[in-house]
């Protein structure tokens, strides 16, 4: 019992992998959905229509002022009321993540677009490009370049935050590790392994980001 026993990890890999699959699935769907909601919110915020802009601003500030765990609980109880039938913990957590992270992505997208010098749009329009063409060929490529490092960083945070899924009874990577640790009575090995896995994945994502940033830096 006192020695560090790695076999407890290798024996439980299938369990832990099942948890990791849920973590990855939840992260990917949350990031994709969050970006879609974020782009819509950002366009509303930047729209010249006052009411739309104010509504988007209220939404963003509201969600950025509450803890994620509250949003998870909130949607867990709210969604069945709205839809009229239970949707299960996975979908309620996913919806909570998408709406919550959408607020953060909205700010990233908005600052990315606003970070492009106003003169770039003027220059593009002055050559006869239409507004849509100017956005597509001149403004957006630069905006995406501005915002993608922050998008990746935010996605890494989401990856870590998906461990909150346990509060509604989902078995993500951390939760599955928790179960294994209790069952086997070897928390030290298991939690060390979990830390190493989280570290390696997040560090690899950061390293990849830095590498690609250097390549496009001009």
């Amino acid at each position: 019992m006192s020695s560090f026993d790695l076999s407890v990890i290798t024996q439980n890999i299938p369990w832990l992998w099942a948890g990791m699959q849920l973590t990855i699935l939840l992260t990917l769907l949350a990031v994709a959905g969050g970006i879609i909601v974020g782009v819509i919110l950002a366009l509303c915020r930047l729209s010249p229509w006052w009411a739309l802009s104010a509504a988007a601003k209220l939404y963003v500030n509201l969600f950025r002022s509450i803890p994620l765990v509250l949003a998870v609980f909130w949607f867990y109880f709210l969604v069945p009321i709205v839809t009229g039938h239970p949707v299960g913990p996975f979908y309620s957590v996913l919806i909570a993540f998408v709406f919550f992270e959408g607020a953060y992505f909205a700010e990233i997208v908005r600052s990315g677009i606003q970070g492009v010098r106003r003169g770039q749009l003027s220059a593009a329009l002055s050559t006869g490009l239409s507004h849509v063409q100017a956005l597509r060929y001149v403004v957006m490529p630069q905006a995406i370049r501005n915002m993608y490092p922050v998008l990746v960083t935010r996605s890494i945070i989401i990856f870590q935050d998906t461990s909150l899924a346990f509060v509604v009874g989902l078995t993500d990577f951390l939760t599955s590790a928790n179960i294994v640790a209790n069952r086997e009575g070897r928390p030290v090995e298991i939690y060390c392994f979990v830390a190493v896995v989280y570290f390696l994945l997040c560090y690899a994502a950061e390293a990849g980001l830095n590498l690609s940033k250097r390549r496009v830096a001009r």
């Binding site: 010098r117 003169g119 770039q120 003027s122 593009a124 002055s126």
Partner: peptide, 20 residues
């Protein structure tokens, strides 16, 4: 206006070349 702009060239103080 887009048609008209395509026949009127403009050069800006800060160049405004597309950096990408």
């Amino acid at each position: 206006i887009y048609k008209l702009r395509s026949r009127v060239g403009m050069v800006f103080q800060s160049f405004e070349l597309y950096p990408h």
